[in-house]
Each structure stands twice: as C-alpha cells, then as structure tokens.
C-alpha cells in the first residue's frame, strides 16, 4: 500500500519519531545541507543531498570503545561508554546514501563476528529515503548501479508530489512501521504522480560490466602515474565518502589508565600502511590513490558484487584540487 502524508503533516510525523528515535534530517547550515538532529521547529531541507554523510552516525569520526584502568586492588577494570541507546531514524536520506549504508552493513554486519558498536547503532535504525527528483551536479549514481529512486538499504521511500509525500514501505521494518503509523492511502492519482517522478529519475545508464576484472589486470599500468599527479594526498575524499570505512584503533591516556578509541583512517595517509619495521609498501601518492580506486572498483566488487561507490559525488565536491572520480573512471575505461 502507498500512504500519503500531506506536506503540513510532516512535522507531526517527525515529532512522533523524535521521542523513541534519535532523529536526523537534512538541515540548512550556512548555505550547506547537513544532517542535523531534529527538534521541534526544524524544517528539513528537501532539495539537494547533505554535504556530510550518514556514515558518521553509524561509524563516527571517533568513538570510545571502552575505558580501561585498574581497581584499587590492582585488578583490571574495563568500562563500557555511556551512549544514547535509542535507535537512529533518518529522514530525507538520498537513495545513494542508503545504498552506501547497505555496503557498510556488508563489511560490519556481514562478517563473523559482526562489529558490535556498529551493530548497536545500526540495529533498529529506521531509514526513510527521499526520491531525488533532480540529481545534483556531481551525482552519478546511475553509472554505478544505483538510481535516484532506488530503494536499496531503505525502510521507507518518500516521493514528493504536489502537496505532500507518497510513502511506501520497502523493507520488513518499513512495513511494520507503516502498519503502526497507519497513514491514509494515497489516491490513484497521487500514486501515478509518484510513479512518474520515480520513472523520470530512473537510471539513464548502467554500470560498466567487467571493470573490476579489467582493473585487476591493470595494477601496474602506467595510467596511475598520471591519474594521481594532482592529488594532494589528504583524506577529504575518503572522510566524506559514504562507503569508505577504514579505521584505526588507538589508546588515549597512559598504559594503565585511558580509553580505547576507534577513529576514521584513510588509505590516502602515508601512515596507513607504515610497518613497524619502517617499511611502507605504499610509498607514494600513486600507490595510495591506486588503492582508493582499486578498493572501490575492483577489490570490493570482486568480493561483494557491486562497486563500493554509490556515485554520490561528495569526493568530487570536497576535493581541494577538483580531482574528479568520474574522470578517473573515464580514463580507466569505466563508466561516464
């Protein structure tokens, strides 16, 4: 069933979520769209995708895994951090971002054992997506197998039509939530309107088949020397990528008293692969940039299927030297 929420009702729908959930929506922040925690009076921005990723809600920039110390009698003491344990709800998520969360799920939940801190945040989260009626200037989701109306990773799909939103449950959790909310059914005309918008947004191009295999054979290709030339070797692209998930585990404090942290790391940093011996197998920016591209378009797809890039375009927007992943793919013979 397709439900309908009039535009004026949205606020009430969000308010109901905000108690049991930690609710995040796209908000306007000095000319940028960012994900912000909803509170009464906040109007979600319905145009454009957020500058930052939803990844940071599930895999924060830095998180305390536990604190450690010693009891007065000298025995070790480990303390789990206090957290807001309400599940997350995200409204206005773009289909690319939801798809990216699905990829993080593969890495953090699809393994044995699953990753506890990630699972804690991810479990029970409600992902409410919004169809992109007008893809942005750096978007290329359709070229990497996604769609501006895609439902992968989502629980509920919202399509904005005149006067409100058509809402469809696209997962079991979404169905349960829709049943509970009991939204009035959309009229046939409203459903037709939503379908039209979804179809207009549907992919124009499809992913390049065989790119992963082809890249595997091009590890030593000369092209890498040229491709990385202007790259500065910062972590802007990886930190803002919704599928990049590399982390470092470190201790803060002293040997017998401190916290163990998990923090974002980046394959673009020289220290990322530095061995204790001092040897570094990825010596220069060339090897590091190759790793970034290969991980997304070769290693991950060979292992899990789709590319580890959802075409959100964030790396294109944040790169200080405008190194465009679409151009890189074009040079490598991929999509675009």
């Amino acid at each position: 069933m397709v439900g309908f929420i009039p535009e004026a009702e949205l606020d009430r729908v969000l308010a109901r979520l905000a108690g049991p959930y930690r609710l995040y929506v796209p908000v306007s922040c000095a000319g940028r769209v960012e994900l912000g925690e909803w509170s009464p009076g906040i109007r979600p921005v319905l145009e454009g995708r957020a500058y930052g990723t939803a990844k940071q809600l599930f895999l924060p920039r830095s998180e305390e895994l536990f604190a450690f110390g010693t009891h007065p009698d000298g025995t070790p003491r480990v303390v789990q951090p206090e957290r807001d344990r309400r599940p997350l709800a995200l409204f206005g998520l773009r289909p690319c971002d939801a798809r990216a969360i699905g990829m993080l799920d593969q890495v953090f939940l699809g393994q044995d054992p699953p990753d506890d801190p990630y699972r804690e945040r991810r479990q029970g989260a409600l992902l409410m997506g919004l169809v992109c009626s007008r893809p942005g200037r750096a978007c290329f989701c359709a070229q990497v197998g996604g769609s501006p109306a895609g439902t992968a990773g989502l629980d509920l799909l919202f399509t904005r039509i005149g006067g409100g939103f058509c809402v469809e449950a696209v997962s079991t959790a979404g169905e349960a939530h829709a049943a509970q909310e009991d939204w009035p059914a959309a009229t046939a005309a409203q459903v037709a309107g939503a379908r039209e918008i979804q179809q207009a947004a549907a992919p124009a191009a499809m992913a390049t088949p065989g790119l992963a295999q082809e890249l595997e054979a091009r590890f030593e290709d000369e092209v890498w020397a040229r491709l990385h030339e202007k790259c500065l070797g910062c972590a802007a692209c990886t930190f803002f990528c919704p599928t990049c998930h590399c982390f470092d585990v470190m201790d803060a404090g002293s040997y017998d008293h401190g916290t163990r942290l998990r923090c974002w790391d980046s394959c673009m940093f020289p220290k990322f692969t530095l061995h204790a011996s001092g040897h570094n197998p990825r010596l220069s920016g060339k090897e590091r940039m190759r790793q970034r591209v290969m991980h997304k378009f070769c290693y991950y797809p060979l292992r899990f299927g789709p590319e580890a890039c959802v075409g959100c375009g964030r790396c294109i927007e944040v790169c200080p030297v405008n190194l465009d992943i679409r151009a890189v793919l074009a040079e490598l013979g991929g999509s675009e």
């Binding site: 200037r137 750096a138 040229r226 030339e229 202007k230 294109i316 927007e317 030297v321 405008n322 190194l323 465009d324 679409r326 151009a327």
Partner: peptide, 10 residues
C-alpha cells in the same frame, strides 16, 4: 569539472 572550479594540470 564543477562550475567555477579549475584544476591543476601537468
């Protein structure tokens, strides 16, 4: 590749 941006060329 974005409006009002330039990029280093070699």
């Amino acid at each position: 590749s974005l409006p009002l941006r330039s990029t280093p060329v070699f």
